[in-house]
Amino acid sequence: MKAIRVAAPGGLDRLSIDEIDTPRDPAPGEIRVQLKASSLNFHDYGVVSGAMKTEDGRIPMSDGAGVVEAVGDGVEFAPGDHVVSTFFPQWFDGPARIGDFSTTPGDGVDGYAREMVTAPATAFTRAPEGWSHEEAATITTAGLTAWRALIVDGGLKAGDDVLILGTGGVSIWALQIARAMGARVFATSSSDDKRAKLEEMGAAGTVNYRDDTGWGSTIREMTGGRGVDHVVEVGGPATLDQSIDAARIGGHLSLIGVLTGRGGEVPTAKLMAKQQRLQGLIVGSRTMQQDMVRAMERTGIRPVIDRSFPLTEIPDAFAHEESGKHFGKICLSI
């Protein structure tokens, strides 16, 4: 069967299509999945580009969705079930227990840029009923990150105000979840065309952060001077100061991304004075994902997919992500 591998030290020109062995029959507690789709995340880009060190010949991609082909004894799935992978296959429930990517598919272990995989059944959950495989694949990383930030950690409720940064997968997912929960959403973008799309999706206010370098205060004024209750902070060191300005006293900031760098100054005095909660997080547990799947079926939310590429065109897919032109998720069809 076909699989994508990345040769160390990484780079889009070092992705290759290889023939590998078909996975073995599932043992008790395992399933074999015919993979149909994946979706791109900034983390995956870090692996394939070489920004994050990984093993030579690693099969990338943390997100995988497909159809159960065979099952071992004692599993909850049956052949023909549609399933989607989990980011931390060994984190089932409870508080976070993993502080690195050593068990994450596509990074510490081989991922889902291949046609088939045999894995523990607990490494997957069922996919939302009626969703395409590309839609389901967006849950593993981006969807669950937004869900945990707002619902699990943030305790989002109707009437809250939420700030999202940009129009990547996590941010668009957060917009949709917040709107479905009855929250008001504000957003930043450097593209006026993307701002118009955000407003079409229900954003109450948007700011072009290149034109308005003090966008934090602008967002706060849009809330009547109170500030937002939640910030989905995907930028990192270069945006955190403005995010603190945008949030209310006692607000919750979910530190998710490092798009502007892996280290930088934290304005501790301002954070302390505003008595805000700054919480780092990486995706979530299997139970969180199961809760999210049920919620998606009840709310009718469907993810926004910018474009889908065949698996064999994976370098082009990452080049599209690298360009920053996408709105929502970029997918791979397997």
Score class of each variant (00 low, 15 high):
324 G>F: 15
77 F>R: 05
89 P>D: 02
11 G>Y: 00
59 I>D: 01
242 Q>S: 07
258 V>Y: 15
166 G>D: 11
137 A>Y: 02
90 Q>F: 14
299 T>C: 02
257 G>K: 11
81 D>L: 10
309 F>M: 01
132 S>G: 05
316 D>H: 10
307 R>W: 08
141 T>D: 14
284 G>L: 03
153 D>I: 15
129 E>V: 15
243 S>R: 07
183 A>F: 06
188 T>Y: 00
126 R>A: 06
106 G>Y: 04
6 V>M: 09
289 Q>K: 11
19 E>G: 13
281 L>T: 12
12 L>T: 11
309 F>K: 00
212 D>C: 04
141 T>N: 14
276 Q>T: 15
193 D>W: 06
108 G>R: 02
331 C>L: 13
5 R>Y: 08
135 E>T: 05
218 T>S: 12
158 A>T: 02
282 I>E: 07
161 D>N: 12
129 E>K: 15
28 P>N: 02
255 L>T: 07
37 A>P: 01
63 D>N: 03
215 W>L: 07
85 S>H: 06
248 R>A: 12
260 T>N: 11
186 F>P: 04
2 K>E: 13
2 K>R: 13
240 L>P: 02
67 V>T: 15
200 E>A: 12
278 L>C: 09
62 S>C: 12
127 A>C: 10
187 A>V: 02
216 G>A: 01
110 D>Y: 07
230 H>V: 05
311 L>F: 14
273 A>P: 14
168 G>Y: 07
28 P>S: 06
171 S>L: 05
137 A>L: 05
114 R>P: 00
268 T>P: 03
264 G>S: 04
273 A>T: 14
245 D>A: 09
129 E>P: 12
236 G>E: 09
236 G>C: 08
90 Q>P: 01
109 V>R: 00
37 A>M: 12
152 V>C: 00
